[in-house]
Design a protein around this nucleic acid. Structure first.
Lengths: 340, 340
DNA sequence: CTAATCACCCAAAACGTTTTGGGCAACACC
DNA sequence: GGTGTTGCCCAAAACGTTTTGGGTGATTAG
């Protein structure tokens, strides 16, 4: 049996220190007014009795459990929770967890809490971080109806007025990549984006269109499901090969697509960087280890995660919602696929 | 302000359904004896009121919050929480999280809960999974003194009688690798292990010594800190190069060491697999992408994680402790570095 | 007919905190 | 001498459940 030892309670500390439980609570939390001598005595006896406040009881009363929840939305739509090579989310989760701990919170990894069989503890979190919500995300509806604070990583484009979000400065990054391609000699730049209606895809496309129209270039946009992996990348390659006026550069958002794309083009005798420049919007094992290695944006999920946790914690502390901020500008890693 | 909406309580459901709160609790949990008609009515009104039980309140009373904690011990000793290329732990955490959800639990990622500034919510978990505890791990002491159920992945070798653990069948895996090397022509097989006093290192060394003595080969053992990465692997290579009677095969436990080792040897003109066979005990980005790719054991952290969660949940349910079991035999991925 | 059993239900206690709403001196000000 | 004010402390209520320990009326057993 899992019989728990009797942990010492606040009552025992109070008795031992000769004060009321109120005073113990105040002395330990630093909230009320307690004489310095009393506080010292309380703290001392608490330590002697190895007193650790029961977080659940405290959470019930104060409505603050000390747990943040993280929902990685894109993974809810995938068949497997952790597709190989998708290290972005893993790095994000790890950094978020560590950052939460530094802020005095635990971090709970959840999948879609709107599912009927979601554990009821899901909604016990003090606040939620939701990465890359879909448009009009039902998870956000649920949390708002329950009054649970939340922050999204990547804007929910269906909610124009909604302010608690943070994301990489996608427009800036897109421009940086496109400029880089142009500087390296590209005259017809295409983009390959995913099909999810999230901020990353949509903002990238918009920035790309702006960039094109500023140059009088006609936009060349190929789409492919995020989940399709390197195979989907090959399909993108196929599509490019069939074009009459083939682009000489591609900005391909996901790393796995970029790797598949490069492989397919190479088979058809279209080499990178000689015949086509390739940049991926997200660094991954595939971009690092293709031949040649593929230039990519390191979206710095650690930076983003820390910013998200910090903003959410601030929000929990009563500070008004974040007004939507750039978590990171990303780090452009130039490799062989885009420079000659 | 983060003012929560008033969530409907069990009391409101009781009033609306015309029964007592006791009956509502029983009807929803299926515990007491409730007339079928009453139960149906209660369930119906609960649904109508969008009632969701407050997990914190329920947790306080029943001493079961519905949260499992995961402590990845090796990461506590590293400077950075998530060193690049260490995907074993990330895969483990992801799979454990998903598996916990399937069992109706949330999963909280924690670092060392014995640290003084660990959030107090850490100890609110119903049970702990601790991966690769060190010898006489203080985290286990803390949890045992608090009476919190736990299960370790990898045995704590300082606790002979302790039964709640699970691990890969290290002895079997070691033998499989060594036999494979022998079959591919190796006559002098060395091993390179880490310095942490955990089950993986120690059991591997013991199995290796057995294997050697069965063949009358003298053991050749090189050690290197886990944290040293590919640089540490190069140091291992250095050490091998300096030996008068150089081994013709190495079983190197960590993937990053193996990659560094291979790179250093190649520089010295010792090529793999021609001059030396190399197998890594843990698959990683580095083993997959070395040239030639390095044979490795996929420890299948997903399998291990699922087994660990299942065993812990069973233990929480009152089933006596797991008697120490093999979570996985691993999957031996033979690549170019060990076959000719 | 009485006693025992059973199915169903409930009021109140309990879980361990935090928060509310004072109380009581001591001291200061008019 | 009253009237605030301040510093320190406390008893009790409250958080929303689950669990305890019956109670009641109907049915069955003796």
């Amino acid at each position: 049996m899992t019989q728990r030892n009797a942990r010492s309670t606040i009552r025992e500390v109070a008795r031992e220190a000769g004060v009321s439980v109120t005073t113990v609570s105040h002395a330990l939390s630093g909230k009320g007014i307690v004489a310095e001598a009393t506080r010292a005595r309380v703290i001392d006896t608490a330590r002697r009795l190895r007193y650790r406040p029961n977080a659940v009881a405290s959470g019930l009363r104060s409505n603050r459990l000390g747990i943040l929840a993280l929902v990685l939305r894109p993974l809810d739509t995938l068949e497997s929770f952790l597709p190989e090579g998708v290290d972005y989310f893993l790095r994000f989760a790890g950094a978020a967890s560590l950052s939460a701990l530094e802020h005095g919170y635990g971090l709970m990894l959840l999948s879609d809490p709107t599912l009927p069989d979601a554990p009821s503890v899901s909604l016990a979190a003090d606040g939620f971080i939701i990465t890359e919500p879909v448009e009009n995300d039902p998870v956000i509806d649920l949390l708002q109806s329950e009054g649970i604070p939340l922050l999204t990583v990547g804007k929910d484009l269906g909610r124009a007025d909604y302010a608690a979000w943070i994301e990489p400065s996608t427009a800036k990054i897109t421009k940086q990549v496109l400029d880089h391609l142009e500087e390296n000699g590209a005259r017809r730049v295409a983009i390959a984006i995913g099909t999810d209606r999230n901020s990353w895809n949509i903002t990238t496309e918009a920035s790309y269109r702006d960039w094109c129209s500023a140059r009088g270039q006609e936009p060349i946009i190929v789409t492919q499901m995020e989940t399709s992996g390197t195979l989907g990348g090959r399909a993108i390659g196929e599509e490019l090969l069939s074009m009459t006026d083939r682009p000489d550069a591609v900005y391909c958002l996901t790393g796995r697509h970029a790797a598949g794309l490069m492989a397919r083009l190479a088979e058809a005798g279209v080499a990178s960087p000689a015949d086509i420049l390739i940049v991926a919007g997200s660094d991954s094992e595939q971009t690092r280890n293709s031949v040649p290695p593929i230039s990519a944006i390191d979206l710095e999920p650690e930076v983003l995660a820390r910013a998200a946790v910090a903003a959410l914690v601030e929000q929990l502390g009563g500070v008004p919602k974040n007004d939507g901020g750039a978590g990171t500008d990303g780090r452009f890693i130039v490799r062989g696929s885009s420079s000659r």
